[in-house]
Design a protein around this nucleic acid. Structure first.
Lengths: 138, 138
DNA sequence: TAACAACCTACCAAAATAGTAGGGAATAAT
DNA sequence: ATTATTCCCTACTATTTTGGTAGGTTGTTA
């Protein structure tokens, strides 16, 4: 399951996606509009910025905005930044790989099943974008 | 990601699947063979039994065995019993559904994307069985 | 130089995870 | 009947993760 933090991230990003091209939005604006605790959101947006998904501007007229078009930010990227691995096992993760103890990867049946699962999941998450979220919301 | 407990569960179940039809296995046997902490494993096997995946017998000659053929135990079932929901959001879960606050489900774009993702994941996890794990382990 | 707004460091409470401890209850062999 | 065997049950504990909060710092604009 995605953490609450990740859900907040998606809500904030969706809002930024809706307002793409209209200049930056304040943390406080997003916080109120999407009912996300202000200081927690501050944190989240900062992380998304460090991951190059957002850009920010300080001082009057400042705020956060998407660095690129919502069409070019896929869901897998967002999840990896805030939530971590998408695969169900560390030894199957593409971006957060860790060797598992006491298991020969070559002949681990579970690993093979989880690789297939990961591929099926990624096929969706890497294709769907923030734009799809906005469009799907009636 | 699956918890360590769930990984232990899969290891134990794979071992039981390999030995299906040969009578019950002791907790201690599985513990040694699969390097799983004994008392923790005791716990796990008991949960799997309560979920009707295993049957047990006490006293000499006792132990645990699969209640049905490894072909008839799919991975989604195991994950749900030990790990919990498979969906990425509570409001998208079939077996652990919870309403999400501040989100109209009908027009929630994120929810729609996560539903598609869940379906893709389940299509694999509900089809693959313990038998597939054993067979895939060259 | 004031106001504004993001940034940074540090802290904290609650929940989940990964176990451990120790005895109780059922079963089988003697 | 008694003993050995084996699963069953309740409770506890340490560590990590999650979900925040507090308060000051730095950069920007007017």
């Amino acid at each position: 399951m995605l953490s609450k933090k990740t859900q907040y991230a998606f809500r904030a990003l969706s809002y930024l996606a809706e307002n793409y091209g209209k200049g930056p939005l304040l943390i406080s604006t997003i916080s109120v509009a999407k009912k996300i605790p202000l200081k927690f959101l501050e944190n989240i947006l900062n992380e998304l910025k460090k991951a190059d998904l957002l850009e920010s501007k300080k001082g009057k007229g400042g705020g956060y905005s998407l660095r690129v078009s919502p069409r070019n930010i896929n869901l897998a990227t967002v999840i990896r930044v805030i939530n971590g691995p998408i695969a169900l096992l560390p030894c199957v993760s593409l971006n957060f790989y860790e060797k598992c103890e006491d298991c020969n990867e070559e002949n681990c049946g579970l690993r093979k099943m989880m690789t297939i699962t990961r591929d099926a999941t990624l096929k969706i998450l890497e294709k769907k974008t923030l734009n799809d979220i906005v469009l799907a919301a009636i």
